[in-house]
Every structure is written in structure tokens, then in C-alpha cells.
């Protein structure tokens, strides 16, 4: 039985990670074309990658969009979470369902919807012509629900009397918010921001429909590159992307684990 479960685990994790490992391995291969066969270890694809204007451009767009949308989504999400938390139970449930919907909605549908919206708006307001700005708006929109979802549990754990205690000790409502509420939910805000950043880096479908030709993200660029013969440059790029997202998720998880152990320590007293 034990062996069986081990084999099962190996198969599952193999299926999950083998393709990615292949990509990583072959990004260091000196041979150019498929069928894949290992020749020598080489960093030439990484060198080429960093000389590729198109990719560097896309990378810079991706990072800018990710930073801007993370910042905006974190602020909006934090305020939204606090507002939702203050609602009565029924309304809160409705709001959370509305919040969760974009996360389960097929991304292609969201992407098409955004495109339609922006095209319609652009007819009246030229800023909404697909490009960097629309890309940012779309990213803020789909990142915000993740932030809300990370902060809600922190708010539930926080003692409501803390805010009142701050008021009692002379804080204005705004001071109490920054001095007490924010520090209390900070771990949630940080994980929320990390999630938003990862989601923004990760996104393809919505970016594809909202980016236009002027501002392309990495994932959209890779997609267009794949139409031509695939070069190991793409493996190198994929490896870097995977590494970045992996590290970010790891950070988010470590943060959560730390927070949980701190909470349980506090609860034991």
C-alpha cells in the first residue's frame, strides 16, 4: 500500500513538474533545434535573450504593469476588504460572491469583455485605446479580488475593540486606521500584494485582448514568438518567469506560515 501511494505521488508530481524541468534543462543546452537532445551546457540562450530588443521591451512593460496594478489593487483591495468586513452578514456574503466571481470566470471571457468595453469607450475617450493604460486597468481589475481574499481572514481574526481602544486613547478615526488597523492586517496586505504581482506576471488571456499592439507583455510576446520556429531562447525566458513566480509564491507562503505560528503562539497564552 505504501509503495503504491509512493508510485502514485511520483506520477502526479512527475506530470506536474516534468515538463517544466525539461524546459529548464534545455534552456541550458547548446543545441539549437528539436528533436531535443543534450549537447553541452551553455548560457548562450540567456545571452541571446538579453540582447533581444522585443523581449526586453516586453519584460519592461510586464514589470511596469505588474508594479502599477499591484499597487493600485492592494490599495483598492484593502479598502474594499475593510468595507466588506463592516457590512452585515448577508450583504457581506453577497459582496464576497461578487468579489470571487472574476477569479472563477474564464479568463478568455474576461479578456473579450474588457476588449469590448475599451473599444466602446475609446470611441468617446481616446485614452481607452488599447495600450499600456487599458492593460493596467484590466490587471488592476483582476488582481483586486485576490487582495480582498487575502485580507478578509486577517480582519476576522482582529479584535474589533482594538480600533475602539485607539479612538479611546485619542486617535482620530484616520489615525486609528493607520496606527492599529493597518499594522494588524499587514501580513494579509503583503501576501495579497504578492499574489496580485504574481497574477499580473502570470496573465496571458486578458493581456492578449487588452494590450493592443503598442504595449505587449512577456506572455503575449512569447505567444507571438511561438508562431515562428521555437528557439531555446523561449526556454530561457520561461525558466526565468517560472523562477520569479516560484520565488514570489514561496515568499507569500513563508509569510503565511510565519503568521500562523505567531498567531497560535499568541493563542496559547
Amino acid at each position: 500500500m505504501k509503495t503504491l501511494s509512493r508510485i502514485y505521488n511520483v506520477i502526479i508530481f512527475g506530470l506536474l513538474y516534468f515538463p517544466i524541468i525539461m524546459v529548464i534543462v534545455f534552456s541550458f543546452n547548446s543545441a539549437r533545434y528539436t528533436p531535443m537532445e543534450w549537447k553541452d551546457f551553455s548560457l548562450q540562450w540567456y545571452e541571446k535573450l538579453f540582447q533581444n530588443e522585443e523581449i526586453l521591451n516586453a519584460l519592461s512593460v510586464t514589470l511596469q504593469v505588474a508594479l502599477i496594478s499591484t499597487l493600485a489593487a492592494t490599495v483598492i483591495g484593502t479598502l474594499a476588504a475593510i468595507g466588506i468586513h463592516a457590512m452585515n452578514r448577508k450583504l457581506r456574503r453577497v459582496m464576497l460572491t461578487i468579489n470571487n466571481f472574476p477569479m472563477v470566470n474564464p479568463e478568455v471571457v474576461s479578456g473579450v469583455a474588457f476588449m469590448l468595453l475599451f473599444v466602446a469607450l475609446a470611441a468617446v475617450l481616446p485614452v481607452f485605446k488599447p495600450g499600456f493604460f487599458t492593460l493596467c486597468i484590466a490587471h488592476v481589475t483582476f488582481c483586486t479580488p485576490y487582495v480582498v481574499l487575502q485580507i478578509m481572514p486577517k480582519l476576522r481574526q482582529t479584535d474589533g475593540r482594538l480600533y475602539e481602544a485607539a479612538l479611546d486613547l485619542g486617535c482620530t478615526p484616520l489615525q486609528a486606521f493607520f496606527k492599529v488597523t493597518i499594522p494588524e492586517i499587514l501580513p494579509g496586505i503583503l501576501t495579497g500584494a504578492l499574489m496580485a504581482f504574481t497574477m499580473s506576471l502570470d496573465d496571458f488571456a486578458i493581456s492578449y485582448f487588452t494590450a493592443g499592439s503598442s504595449a505587449q507583455t512577456l506572455s503575449v510576446t512569447i505567444y507571438s514568438m511561438v508562431k515562428r520556429p521555437v528557439t531555446p531562447e523561449i526556454y530561457a525566458l520561461s525558466t526565468l518567469l517560472f523562477g520569479t513566480v516560484f520565488v514570489l509564491l514561496l515568499l507569500a507562503n513563508i509569510g503565511q506560515v510565519r503568521d500562523i505560528s505567531r498567531r497560535s503562539k499568541r493563542a496559547r497564552r
Binding site: R161, L162, A166, L167, D168, T172, P173
Partner: peptide, 20 residues
């Protein structure tokens, strides 16, 4: 008059100390 402008202070039931 809001709480922060009143010259009274409260000791809350479960203390409500600031954990951070």
C-alpha cells in the same frame, strides 16, 4: 463629541492591547 475628544479612558473587557 467623538470618543477621541472625550477626557475619559476605557479598560476593555478583553484588554484590547495592541499586539504589534
Amino acid at each position: 463629541v467623538p470618543p477621541h475628544k472625550r477626557q475619559v479612558n476605557t479598560i476593555f473587557q478583553r484588554y484590547a492591547l495592541f499586539p504589534h
